[in-house]
């Protein structure tokens, strides 16, 4: 799981008394890059919303007024203080 390679196939050709048999062992797989991408996006978005928004996010739809009303900021405000983010 901690190896950068996608899949590691160990091809082992064993000779036994009766016949040759080809043995394929799947050793380990990589962590899905898609999953990591999704988690990074969630992390950054959540961190911004709880820890840093000063009206920026709602200003995308609400315009400049969002920086005064700061609805999203106020909504996550108490958690922001409790989690140690700078505020006020």
């Amino acid at each position: 799981m901690d190896k950068p390679t996608n899949y590691l196939y160990i091809l082992d050709i064993l000779k036994n008394e009766m016949s040759y048999s080809r043995q394929l062992l799947i050793k380990r797989s990589d962590i899905s890059k898609v999953a990591i991408g999704i988690l990074v996006a969630i992390m950054l978005f959540g961190f911004f919303v709880v820890g840093f928004d000063q009206g920026q996010l709602f200003s995308l739809v609400e315009g400049k007024q969002a920086f005064d009303s700061k609805w999203l900021h106020e909504f996550t405000h108490d958690m922001r203080h409790a989690a140690g983010f700078p505020c006020h």
Partner: peptide, 10 residues
């Protein structure tokens, strides 16, 4: 709600 967003983010 803030706790949930913070929780999922971390």
């Amino acid at each position: 709600v803030g706790g949930i967003i913070y929780g999922i983010s971390l």
